[in-house]
Design a binder for these strands. Structure first.
Lengths: 244, 244
DNA sequence: CCAATCAGTGAATCTAATTCAAGATTGAAA
DNA sequence: TTTCAATCTTGAATTAGATTCACTGATTGG
């Protein structure tokens, strides 16, 4: 009989409902004042029920991040399927991040918190596992592109592994997200759009690796054109405010 | 009369005592189980007294980070005074970070937490201000080096401001610290020493900027030699385990 | 139809941060 | 040396909010 299956489905629906409620509350009042009681209220269930799904508040935050990670990964997968040079695809990963963060401004804020010793340690082991697994494809996609570049002679690893190269780009990206969310920094430094700047840094780094064809870093128009082109070709529906 | 001054001094000593106690407890049991009552106990004062110094637990964590930041800045200042090419000095900033993190392994772990919306928002405004100010010199030193490079024709900014260039390197560094502390990532990716890898990425990035003299990225021995040389010349007393 | 099991509830519990009324200490003035 | 207002320190009491669990009503299989 399908009873069990139906139960399972309802359980998952309820979980989604809790996560949605949590997202709304975070959006409305910020992560700081998120309360379990409020989440349960908003979802129209008892607190006890909420705890049937999440081992702790931190666990719930990881669950939110897992959801986002899936969407994030999908964008990356689209890049992986895109017919373009490895270098353009690698760059497109950065553009994907830029668009993703624009659609999910809370994601990196929560993500930053969630990967903190305190929060990570207070979540349940299975949830941690789930989050790590949800992010796995990202690494695979990036190293895949790097391998393509190597095998088509566009890139020489010079003793590094593809993973090590990807760590560099990943660090650059994560670091930018961090600085964006760290109060005041980007303002004080009068950077314009930090994510456009990230795109430039990615190009710089790729040039540093000698990843061919090299980009002309002083050509701002070319950079914008490429971002625009990728936005249109790979993420047409995310567009509308592609520039700047 | 000096009564007021003495009081002031004693107050500061007590604050340092609290911070030391907090550090010990974090070292012993981790950030996760840090408790205000325990800190007070360890410092041999009442909880109320602890709250005379820190507006909240989060405030205390910022205070810890401010202390560390001062040490951090000192290392950077030594680099700024070092007689060497701008490129070597810029690279030495990375080495300083590597040595600093080795001496203060908790710093970036706490720092990561502290710059989180939740913690940042729960600290007092003056403390936030203090933390931002404590970090100010870092930006100044880095942009100073960049300006030196520009005026000696080693580097062309190609439309970026010195601040924007520094953001790139800073992001790379922060991102690496983050990944190091994010459970499992560095292990899964079988990176060796993540900070040595950061050094390589910094060289890559500097090459990407076309910052002369360009480094030969495939020359591992040269990289190690440079790290070694900087450790000895600029940070002789931090040495002892300079390599690897 | 009934007993057994299961899912859902929310008031009660627990943990730890934070406060504040009361007591102790200080030091300038008499 | 004594006094006393001002200042500092204290830790028990309060508070906030996460988490639990004994209870209740629903569901299922016999």
């Amino acid at each position: 009989m399908g009873t069990k299956e139906r139960r399972q489905r309802q359980f998952e629906e309820r979980e989604a409902r809790f996560l949605k409620a949590a997202r709304e509350l975070i959006h409305e009042n910020g992560l700081l004042s998120l309360q379990m009681t409020r989440i349960a209220e908003r979802a129209e269930y008892a607190v006890g029920t909420l705890y049937l799904h999440f081992a702790s508040k931190e666990d719930l935050l990881l669950a939110l991040t897992v959801e986002d990670a899936r969407i994030h990964v999908e964008l990356f997968q689209r890049v992986a399927r895109w017919q373009a040079s490895p270098r353009d695809r690698m760059f497109a990963i950065g553009v994907a991040d830029m668009l993703f963060v624009r659609r999910h401004p809370e994601h990196f804020r929560i993500g930053q918190y969630v990967f903190t010793e305190v929060v990570w340690g207070a979540a349940s082991a299975p949830r941690r596992q789930a989050l790590l697994e949800a992010n796995d494809p990202i690494g695979e996609i990036v190293t895949g592109i790097i391998n393509d570049a190597v095998s088509s002679n566009k890139l020489q690893l010079k003793g590094l592994t593809p993973e090590q190269v990807s760590i560099g780009l990943w660090s650059l990206t994560i670091g930018t997200h961090n600085l964006v969310h760290a109060e005041g920094v980007m303002e004080d430094f009068n950077v314009g759009n930090p994510y456009r700047l990230l795109c430039r840094h990615i190009q710089t780094m790729l040039n540093g690796y000698g990843w061919k064809p090299l980009a002309d870093l002083s050509d701002d128009a070319a950079l914008d054109a490429l971002i625009e082109r990728i936005s249109n070709e790979v993420f047409p529906e995310l567009c509308g405010d592609c520039e700047a």
